[in-house]
Design a protein around this nucleic acid. Structure first.
Length: 218
DNA sequence: GGCTGATCATAG
DNA sequence: CTATGATCAGCC
């Protein structure tokens, strides 16, 4: 339990410069041979190092101080390599949702970004932990996020979910988020009927997170 | 080479 | 199944 955001930030900063392999060794964690079947491994290693405890509950990683932890893979220019998953998307009873009360807005209220730096061909074990920082979206960023959320939720409410692609949205994306292509969940179809579709999640576009990192490190 | 759609492990 | 942690992999 952290008593302040600063305490968490200092802990995260103390990891800077370590390689993933070194950190795993310090924590007595045996790394997998690759990440093909352990895609969340690095994120969970950092959670262990920082003492995050939310588990798989749909809340922030550090609810006591209102901070969400996100590791972000970047190249040596600190440019993000992947988009950033935020949370799953509610596809039915969407009329009950209020932006300010959504998991999405809550998780985006404050994020501790922790870059993992490496060349694309490097083994993840020799990637190094970068300088972590706390981020809150500014008014402009909140507006963009809210606009995308409203556009996406409107389409979902109108039964147009199958018309949403990863191209929809300026800074957000709505993409499949499931164990595989056969996982199905309820959604609103045309005419308001219930249909089955692949579960979806909200992601931050790489271009958006790139700007966040650039603004911070410039 | 970037991006979209698909996928993997695990806990409850 | 839904939620967490994300990256994989093939198409354009």
């Amino acid at each position: 339990m952290y008593r302040s955001k600063l305490e968490l930030l200092e802990k995260a900063l103390s990891l800077a410069g370590l390689t993933i392999g070194e950190l795993a060794n310090q924590l007595n964690v045996i790394p997998p041979s690759d990440l093909k079947k352990k895609k969340g491994w690095m994120g969970q290693l950092i959670e262990l190092a920082l003492g995050a405890s939310a588990g798989s509950k749909p809340i922030q990683d550090f609810p006591e101080i209102g901070v969400e932890l996100k590791t972000i893979p970047v190249d040596t220019n600190l440019k993000p390599i992947e988009s950033t998953y935020i949370c799953t998307t509610q596809l039915i009873r969407t009329h009950e949702l209020i932006w300010e009360k959504t998991h999405l807005r809550n998780k985006l209220s404050e994020i501790l970004w922790l870059p993992i730096i490496g060349n694309k061909n490097d083994s993840f074990l020799i990637k190094t932990i970068g300088t972590a920082f706390l981020w809150q979206p500014d008014d402009n960023e909140i507006n963009l996020l809210r606009q995308d959320w409203e556009e996406l939720m409107e389409m979902i409410s109108e039964g147009k979910i199958e018309s949403i692609s990863a191209r929809t949205g300026q800074v957000l994306q709505l993409r499949p988020k499931a164990a595989n292509g056969s996982a199905l969940t309820n959604a609103i179809g045309l005419n308001g009927t219930i249909i089955q579709t692949r579960p979806r999640g909200f992601y931050l576009r790489t271009a958006f997170t790139a700007q966040i990192l650039k603004n911070h490190y410039r």
